[in-house]
């Protein structure tokens, strides 16, 4: 479904990604793990067209999207929940959700999706007229994921959904991620520093170190790999 072929991404003269290649099949949950500063967020920004690669190709369903603008990429069905959630603080919860559906014109289906998400996250329904900035961290993460789902993405990119959340809330969020994947058949590319949780949720995983993919395997295999356990799982 998505393929990166040897992409190099630069911030001015600093190279953040070196020949990163990876592939995601339809219906999978794929995890990308790595230490702080490894280049995980950069990888997602390259896919979304915010940090376009200088070399290499990004393919979505076989078509190159490397030089497309961010809005064209969203239109194709790729939506990202960036690190730190980025809720619009002065828009209400309902308006934040509207922004997720910005490129859609099917008002009826949009309303139905909104109701579906309100059912999934009753707290959002309760707070629909409050500014997004008033929500707690966990509520904001639910809103951020819901907002992205309003775009009806076929590929959902999630950047550190567990960041700053209590373990209980994190577990809830990850359960929802699995539910979205199974019930809506949304393909998910999951970036996490919490490697343990990510690998328990995902089908497969990639390990990024200093901007390079250093390992890739089935998630269960990575979980039992002693080098991974030592470096990322704190075992």
């Amino acid at each position: 479904m998505l393929e990166l072929r040897g992409i190099d991404v630069f911030y001015d003269k600093i190279q953040a990604l070196h020949e990163v290649s990876l592939a995601i099949q339809p219906g999978e949950i794929v995890a990308l793990i790595g230490a702080n500063g490894a280049g995980k967020s950069t990888t997602l920004m390259a896919i979304s067209g915010i940090a376009p690669p200088r070399r290499g190709e990004v393919l979505f369903e076989g078509q190159p999207i490397t030089r497309l603008t961010p809005d064209a990429i969203v239109k194709l069905g790729i939506c990202q929940v960036p690190e730190g959630r980025h809720i619009f603080p002065d828009l209400t919860v309902a308006e934040n959700l509207d922004m997720g559906a910005f490129l859609r014109r099917d008002a009826k289906a949009i309303a139905a999706d909104r109701d579906m998400l309100y059912e999934l996250f009753p707290i959002l329904a309760k707070r629909r007229n409050q500014p997004g900035g008033n929500l707690s961290g966990g509520e904001q993460q639910m809103l951020a994921i819901s907002r992205a789902l309003m775009a009806r993405p076929r590929l959902l990119l999630l950047d550190e959904p567990s960041m700053g959340l209590a373990p209980l809330i994190t577990r809830q969020i990850f359960a929802i991620i699995q539910k979205i994947n199974q019930e809506q058949n949304t393909t998910i590319f999951l970036v996490e520093q919490n490697a343990n949780l990510a690998l328990q949720t995902a089908d497969r995983g990639y390990v990024l170190e200093n901007g390079r993919v250093v390992m890739q395997d089935r998630a269960a295999t990575l979980l039992s790999n002693t080098a991974i356990q030592k470096a990322y799982l704190g075992i």
Binding site: S48, V74, L91, E95, M99, F102, A151
Partner: peptide, 22 residues
């Protein structure tokens, strides 16, 4: 829709881009 996009862009330009706002 345009007005919401204007407010969203003013508050968080990168996020607006990520949701498909031109």
């Amino acid at each position: 829709r345009t007005g919401k996009a204007m407010r969203a862009t003013a508050q968080d330009q990168k996020m607006a881009l990520l949701l498909g706002v031109n």
